[in-house]
Every structure is written in structure tokens, then in C-alpha cells.
């Protein structure tokens, strides 16, 4: 298993227009049922995961997503 503590995942802002990107993601889910949202998100995650390509980054992102959930 790849090392997931490498700090490969960027934690500071990497978007030139953060509000636009955030709203684009949210708006893309508008009018979708919960079930459709899951299907949509799965497609989006797979497309982005392949684009990122770096397994260490992906594993760290998976862990970060899960850990922040447990904190909430």
C-alpha cells in the first residue's frame, strides 16, 4: 500500500476562482434525486481520480474525506 502520510495532497487553495468552481459543482447537482446525486458523484470521482493519476494523492484524499466525516 502506498504511503498515505506523505503530504502529497494539496491543502491550500489551488483554484483561481474558488466561488465559481464551488458553485459549478453544487449547481451540477441541482434537480437530481439523492440516488441520481450518488450516481453523478461516482462518475465525477472516477473522472477526476483518473485525471489526478497519483495514487498517493488519492489515498490521502480518501483518508482525509473519511476522517473529516468522523470528526463532524
Amino acid at each position: 500500500m502506498a504511503d498515505i502520510t506523505t503530504g502529497a495532497l494539496r491543502r491550500t487553495l489551488n483554484l483561481a476562482r474558488p466561488d465559481d468552481v464551488y458553485n459549478a459543482i453544487v449547481d451540477a447537482h441541482r434537480d437530481l434525486s439523492d440516488e441520481q446525486c450518488r450516481a453523478f458523484d461516482a462518475r465525477l470521482i472516477l473522472l477526476l481520480a483518473n485525471h489526478v493519476g497519483d495514487e498517493a494523492v488519492l489515498r490521502e484524499a480518501l483518508r482525509a474525506a473519511r476522517e473529516t466525516m468522523e470528526e463532524a
Binding site: R38, A39, A42, R43, I45, L46, L47, N50
Partner: peptide, 23 residues
């Protein structure tokens, strides 16, 4: 359930996105 959602997402991407075929 989520396993099936990702499986079906992979299948539906495969025709247009070659990377998904490998999955």
C-alpha cells in the same frame, strides 16, 4: 449500495472514456 453505484458509473463511462474500460 455504493459498490454498485461505482460499478455502474464505471460501466457508463467506459464507452466514451477509455480509462474506465481498464476498471
Amino acid at each position: 449500495a455504493a459498490s454498485r453505484v461505482f460499478r455502474d458509473a464505471t460501466l457508463s463511462l467506459a464507452r466514451d472514456f477509455p480509462f474506465a474500460r481498464a476498471l
